[in-house]
């Protein structure tokens, strides 16, 4: 029986750290699913099939969380007793918020550019660069794991959520241009 008391990192046999070895994560994911996936129990009893479904769901959830840098950060903070309510909380870093406004304006302006695809591609590179910079900072913050550093990681997570939304909007704009073809 899959041990549901284990946290996601333990489930995947990974150290509880922000930096995750993607290769290892993927390999452990495949191994775990090979042993619990419902396809392995197509001819088993009803009860076994239910357990298998539960296990596969748990593993998918854990995998989804660990492979995404934002979900992973949130989960690690939770393990440290720090929860975030998305509905209410946001960053109050004025400089960062100003930058967000400017980025949004730049994205909106790309519609009027002669080659909007190129502008959006560059824009996405820039957004990803910023997300990666935050990931780098968070790695250090989680490593030291002092209350101050964890609070800083929390602030970075709030910022990453902004950037993620921006990335989503840029991709949506690109899709919209596709459809207009």
């Amino acid at each position: 029986m899959l041990d549901f008391s284990k946290n996601y990192f333990e489930l995947f046999g990974l150290p509880v750290e922000y930096v995750v070895d993607a290769e290892q994560l993927a390999a452990h994911y495949r191994e775990l699913q090979k042993s619990v996936h419902p396809d392995r129990f197509a001819n088993a009893t009803e009860q076994e099939r239910r357990l298998s479904m539960q296990g596969a769901v748990r593993i998918n959830e854990a995998h989804e969380t660990l492979k995404d840098p934002i979900l992973r950060a949130r989960y690690l903070l939770e393990l440290n007793g720090i929860e975030i309510d998305n509905q209410i909380e946001t960053t109050h870093d004025a400089v960062f918020l100003m930058e967000q406004l400017e980025l949004r304006e730049a994205l909106e302006a790309s519609r009027q550019q002669p080659d909007p695809y190129a502008v959006i591609a560059d824009f996405l590179l820039e957004v990803n660069r910023r997300i990666n910079a935050l990931i780098g900072q968070m790695a250090l913050q989680f490593e030291s794991a002092t209350p101050e550093q964890l609070a800083a990681a929390r602030e970075n997570l709030l910022k990453m959520q902004f950037l993620k939304k921006l990335r989503y909007d840029a991709e949506s704009l690109e899709a919209e241009l596709d459809d207009a073809l």
């Binding site: 029986m1 899959l2 191994e31 619990v36 392995r40 001819n43 088993a44 298998s52």
Partner: peptide, 14 residues
């Protein structure tokens, strides 16, 4: 890794 203490897949098949 023994995750589920269940019969192995296909074991019921002769």
């Amino acid at each position: 890794m023994a995750l589920l203490q269940l019969s192995e897949p296909g074991q019921s098949t002769a």
